[in-house]
Structure formats: C-alpha cells, structure tokens
Design a protein around this nucleic acid. Structure first.
Lengths: 212, 212, 212, 212
DNA sequence: CGGTAATCGAGACGGTACGTCTAGTCTTAAA
DNA sequence: TTTAAGACTAGACGTACCGTCTCGATTACCG
C-alpha cells in the first residue's frame, strides 16, 4: 500500500518527510472540504511540496486519495468469538468503523466514482480493500463450518456483500447516522440468513411451505 | 421529478422539445462516455440546445444527470406474490434492474459522489428514489405481518438496506457481474433473516439468544 | 432622430410611454454604469418594458444608445458674433458641452467602438451628428469670407476636425478635465491658423484686438 | 510595455515563444476581424496556446490588445528639421502612421472604449502612448523657442491635442480616408496657430499679447 | 572527490469544463 | 399589432484544475 512508482536506487532518494506531509495534507483536506473540492494543487500547497512531487508518487488524484485515506491490510486477523454471529459482528463493526472515520466518510463516494473510470485503481482497490476483507469472511465461514453451524460454506463474496452492502447503503445511500449497534444488528441478520442452509434437514418437504 | 424551477405562467413557456432532447442526450452520453466525462457543454451540443437552456432547468450537472437518469416513482405498486420471500424477490429484481441499465450503471457512482456535497440534490434523491422504494418495503412488510409471516415489523429502512445494500455492493464495490438470480438469492436470505425459517431447524446450536 | 422602424398604421399603436421610459432608462444607466456594462436587458427592466419592445424600436444596443444619448439637430443656428474667432468659440463651446454631459461622457467611447463595426449606425451618426455640425462650420466660414476675414474657404471638414478633434483628444485620449475656457482657446488657435492665408489680407478690418 | 506580472525567478520561466505567438495572433486577428469580434479564446487557439497562458500574462482582453497592438516608445527622437513647422509635420506624419496601420485602425476605437472603464489600462495607455508623444512635443517646442520662432512655450498637452485630435477626428469620427499630406497640412495649421507666421506680418496689429 | 542521476519547490504549459452573462430572436396570453 | 414576460440559440467571459514539463538548486551514491 506504500506509494507506487518503481523506486530507483540511483540519484537522490525520496524524502520521507514529503510522503508524510502529503498523506497528512490529503487527510486534512478530505475531512475539511471533501473529495470533489480537493485539488492536487491544494494538497501540494498545504503539504509545502511541489506538484511534481505528488505526481512522482501517485499517478492521479484518485491514487493519492486512495493511498492516503484507505487503511491498508493492517487489521488484526478476525478474532474467534466462538459463534458465527459473534465473528460476523466483530467484522461488521470493523467495517463500520473504517467507513465512518471523518476521512473515509468524505473520500468513499468520490473514490468510488473515480474507480468507475480508472480500472487500474479499481484493481488496486479490490486487491487492497475488498480482497482482504473477503479473506476474513472466508476464515469466519470456515470456522463456522468446522463448528457445525453451517452445513456448507456459501459464496464468501455474497456474505461479504451481505455485511458490507447494508452498511454502505445505510451510510451513503439512505444517509442515516450510524447507530451504535448497527454492525451487530446486521451481523445478527446475516447469521440468521445463513443459518442452516438448504432444506431443513433431510426429510423436509418442498421449499414451498415457507409459511411461518 | 420534473425539471425544477417554478413554472411561471407568464412569458414564453418552456419548450417540451428541449426537455426531451436534453434527457435523451444526457442518457446517450452517460451510456457512451460515463458520468465523469459527461459535460454540460457536450449535452447541450448533442441536444442541439444552448447552454443557457440547460442551466435554466438544472442548477448543476448533478441535477441534470439525476433528473435524466433516475427513474421516477413510475413503478407499479409491488405485486403480491403470496409470500414475503416472493414479494422481496420481486422488489429485489426491480432494484437490480434499475441499477443495471446502461444509463444507471454509469451514472450511479458519479451521482453518489456529487450527492455527498450537494445537500439539495441529496434531499431530492432521498425523496425520489429512496423514499419511494421504502414505501414499497413497508407495504411488503405489512402484508407479511397480516399473513402471519412476521411477528413484528422490523425497521423498513433496515430491510431496505438489506436488499439494496448487497445489490449495490455486488455491482459497484465488488464489481461483480450481476448473476441472473442474484435478486432472488438475496431476497431469500433477507426473508430468512427476518422471520423464522420453515420448521424451526432441529437443534442447530445456540441460535436462541438473539440480540435485541 | 426619432426611433426607427417603419411604423405601421394598423394594429395597436406604439405607446409613447414606452419610448420615453426607454430613453430615460438608457440615459440613467449610461451615467450610472457606462456603455460597456449597459445591457439591453437592464434597460428594459429599468424601463419596465419587455425586451421585444426595445428591439421593435432599435436594431441594436448601439442604435438604442445612439438615439437616447446623442442630441439631435436641435441646436439653434450658429449665432453671428461678428468675428470668425467669436463664431468658432460659440461652436466649440457647444461641442464641448455636448461631449461633457454625464451621458455623453460615458456613451461616446463605446459608441465609437460599435460604430467601427456597424456601418449602418455609422452612417446615421454621420448624418445626425457630424453632418449637422459641419453645416454650421460652413455657415461660419461663409460669414467670415463675406466679412473679408478669409480669402478663400478652407475645407469645412478640416476645420471641423480642427475644433472637434482637439476637444475629443483632450477629453478622451489625454483624459484631462475640461477647462472652463477650453473651447475658446481652441477657437482662438483655429482662427489664428485659418487667419490670413498667405500674405496678410490687404487692409482688412478688425483683426487687431484679438486679445482675450 | 512588456507583458505584465512580476517575473518571479523561481519556477519554470515563461516561454518567449508563447509571448511572441500571442502578440502575433492578436495582431493578425485584429486585422482580420477587428476588436469587437476578437476573442481571447480565438487568440489562444490561433497562437496554439492555452487560455491560461493568456490570462497569466494579461488581465483582460483590453490588456492583451493594448500590449500587442500599441507600439511602445520605440520611435526615434524627433528629427530636427530646422523649423517648428517642419518638426511638427514629422511628428504628425508619425502619429498618422501609427493610427493607420491595419492593426491600429481596428484596435483603437475598441481600446478607447475599454479605457473608459478600466483605469489601470488607461493609466498604462497614458504612460506608454500619450506621455511619450507629449515629451516629443515638448522637445519640439523647446527647439522652436530657442530658435526664436516662439516667444513662450504653450502648454504641450494643448499642442499635442492640436495635432493628435484632428488626425483622430478625421479618421475615426469623420471617417475620412487619410490624405497623403494630411499630417503636413495639420502641422502647417498648428504652426500658424502657435506663432507669428513666416515673416512677421507687416503691421497686423498687436498680435503680441497672446493669451496665456 | 567529482560526476551522475534522481530529487526538491515552484510554477508555466496545453487542455478542457465550469457556471455566468449578454445579444438578438421568438413565442406566449392579454389588451 | 402592440404589450410584458421570458425562453430560445449562440458563444465569450474569466476561473479553476488536471496531469505534464521545465527551471535552478539539492542531495545522495558511484566510480
């Protein structure tokens, strides 16, 4: 998740100070004015840095913001709470937390829009953010299966969407303030939805009688 | 949902032709070049219309796109399929459909980003798009309760997020192609999460103590 | 100098009130904001009149201003003061006066610029403003010749330029404030320049006491 | 007279090529379409330059045209012809020449109009164009006095107006084509107006006490 | 130690879109 | 046919960024 371009060994080395100042300035400006109103010129000025120093590190504004605002795979591995529901709750709270920092809150929608047109950034976003969470989902599902809570592991992507999606929708589509226990409630619903998969143990007739 | 400004009765009336041409041009360009690369100048030119005619109707690019790309409350009331799961499936397929038109697919992320900084548009978005779907959710939940499928109605916003969120996440965050039965599968999961599933699963561990 | 377009006899007759309000509003705005910042919309609004009513009377902004700001041939015929120098002084003071009203002062440079590109208006300007003054010059020269002050009449256009030019230059090129006796001083110089052409006129009367 | 902004020593220096291309394009377009129809966008396009490069150098269209069209103080010092009349003729021909280039002819009236509302440009116009010519007038008057052609030096501004004014009026107010010897004729008249003509006219009364 | 090479801040470069403004024309309903 | 009101096309205005490039001045490593 560090900067980007191939760092040659020859010539004057990059200054760490510049990297830090850029990250800092980007985060500040994101929180202050939001993604759309954030300009590379503004970031460079705030960081006391030339524009070239920015573009030497990031190919575009989207990359700059992405690298500065999105946390990397620095989360601890998912804690084992003993139940699927508990594991999912921990994960959901983590996702919720990373979506509600002042920085993320401003950056996410704009970043998403840029992703739509910059496949390269989109790929990195997948690899850094999405993929990493999905691995955690897989781990959790695996555990649940070995506990006997699940008969067969569902598609991890679907489960991921089942947690991430409603959180995102709540915050950015419905634009509701995040309730304290939102993550837990969604984890609860998700666990319930995944519950015993397939036709309730052998013998249970056609899926028709869903009634009650 | 129509254009915007108070339609005065005096003076030359707005030309319908212009409204139509603008909507048409906007949709075409959205599908062709996407939201970011769409320019008001381009839309006006394609529509054979002066820029002033655009800004007389829409305060910004976001308003223009919103009004042109987002379907209004022109959906039929939710069909009663006889089961909660069925009703949700119909709704989910509808949402999925409206998110996967060539126009929406391009417009949604950009629109979302603009929403973040333009409260006025955000309000309209809520009223037009979100609110209307939420009413449908309420209707469906009401029906389910009168059928006895649900004991108590959950928060419609939460249920809405439970359907809309995963669909959105699947398409725009995970960037996966929409499977044919995606809506149905999510409706299935949602129904399962909301109510007791079929015959209570025999003995599947501590599903009892559900929070809240 | 009245308005312009062919006034049909059929249909509703034009309202005098509109003509007056337009003239009035144009003069006010000229004095307030100057020629460049004066807009037809502004004039119409100030006059409480529709834009169409303006363009029904004047083909362009230049025509509007020209008709509203430039005095017509409403000057009395040049008074005979008894000397060429005196006659020229009266004329020069008249020209100076017409160039230094608040309205003219603002209108003249802008009008001049538009004249450069609108031959039609330029023609009317010649006919209304220039020609009329030139006739006065001719009259004055004729008188001087019959008095014996001049041997032969010089080109009236040149004499006109000799009076009008320096006044214009003083005001609009050098941008100096008009001295009280500027007209008189220039008339003095002009009379002197025209004076006895070639060898001093044989024995001609009272050219003596030119002093003040 | 050069461009404008303080030329900082830091950062990338301005490109000479851009300055030249802008001046060139402005002059071409002035001659082709005139002042009113000249647009900054057009100039930039013709010069193969971004609009920003123009506005980095000139605050407005008026400044651009002024800097491109008006000759600087690059005239040689006024040649001494031996007589006041001769000196004035040289000067008048020079002024006439500078007012009748294709570029000036188109630029002057428009520039004059813009001067009326932009005091900053007006000031520069004074300093560059007017003042410089006035110094030449002073030189000429001084010479004439030391020759004994003039008893006392009149106001140089008035003399300047006496030459420049009629030329301007002839060209832009009366809109007459410039005669070959126009400058000389005006210089003749001016010399006559200023001083005793030729051999002091025998006995023509008290021409001595000339006013002021 | 002197050269090579990449860095630094600064800011100009070509492009492009923005949202505003005005000109002059056209269209409505009412008079 | 006029009126007031205001929509219409067309296009310039001056501002703001983007991402690239260029300047002179550092600052490391390499030979």
């Amino acid at each position: 998740l560090s900067a980007s371009a191939a760092t040659s060994l020859r010539g004057r080395p990059r200054e760490r100070r510049v990297d830090d100042a850029l990250r800092q300035a980007t985060r500040e400006l994101l929180a202050e004015v939001g993604y759309a109103a954030l300009s590379v010129e503004g970031v460079a000025a705030r960081a006391g840095v030339g524009k070239a120093a920015v573009y030497r590190r990031f190919r575009s504004k989207a990359e700059l913001v992405f690298a500065s605002a999105v946390h990397g795979p620095d989360l601890p591995p998912p804690r084992d709470t003993g139940t699927l529901r508990g594991d999912l709750a921990v994960l959901a709270e983590g996702i919720l937390g990373s979506l509600t920092t002042p920085v993320s809150a401003e950056a996410v929608p704009g970043l998403l829009a840029d992703l739509a047109k910059q496949p390269e950034i989109a790929r990195r976003f997948q690899a850094t953010f999405i993929q990493h969470e999905q691995v955690r989902v897989e781990t959790i599902l695996e555990r649940a299966r070995s506990r006997g809570e699940l008969r067969e592991s569902p598609d991890p992507a679907l489960v991921h969407a089942l947690l991430l999606g409603p959180l995102f929708a709540w915050l950015f589509l419905l634009r509701r303030p995040p309730a304290r226990d939102l993550g837990e409630r969604l984890a609860d619903l998700a666990a319930r939805a995944l519950g015993p998969v397939g036709p309730p143990p052998p013998r249970t007739g056609p899926r028709t009688a869903k009634k009650r």
